[in-house]
């Protein structure tokens, strides 16, 4: 618990970051940039877990552990996504979303 900071303020911060991530995910035209937005979203969610745990149920540590899991999964996800992106780049020499619409047809 942070002295003098209520849960509302922290939640406001994380929610804002979350929607910034959403904004980025929707507007970006590059796969890497989209991944970066996803990192933002994941981080805001992780903070939420921790904050709720700390402020409301200090005796437990589930939120804490979940945050660790989130970080672990994010690491795995990023590694895989980047591997895919690299492979893709080898195939079509681009990581722009507009070049990846061939599935549509």
């Amino acid at each position: 618990m942070i002295e003098g900071v209520s849960i509302y303020e922290i939640l406001t911060l994380t929610t804002t970051v979350f929607f910034i991530g959403v904004y980025g995910f929707v507007t970006r035209k590059n796969l890497m940039a989209m991944l970066i937005s996803i990192e933002l979203i994941l981080n805001s969610a992780a903070i939420n877990f921790v904050v709720v745990n700390k402020y409301l149920f200090p005796a437990k540590m589930d939120g804490d552990i979940f945050s660790i899991f989130i970080i672990a999964i994010a690491a795995g996800e990023t590694a895989l996504a980047l591997a895919i992106i690299i492979n893709l780049y080898r195939l079509i020499m681009s990581v722009k979303t507009k070049d990846l619409e061939t599935m549509k047809h």
Binding site: G76, A79, L82, L91
Partner: peptide
């Protein structure tokens, strides 16, 4: 999570390694 990380590791290598063009 441990298995997932291992799988991600192997998968990432396998995907990034493939040289098909």
């Amino acid at each position: 999570i441990s298995i997932f990380l291992l799988a991600a590791l192997v998968g990432a290598i396998a995907i990034a390694k493939s040289t098909k063009t």
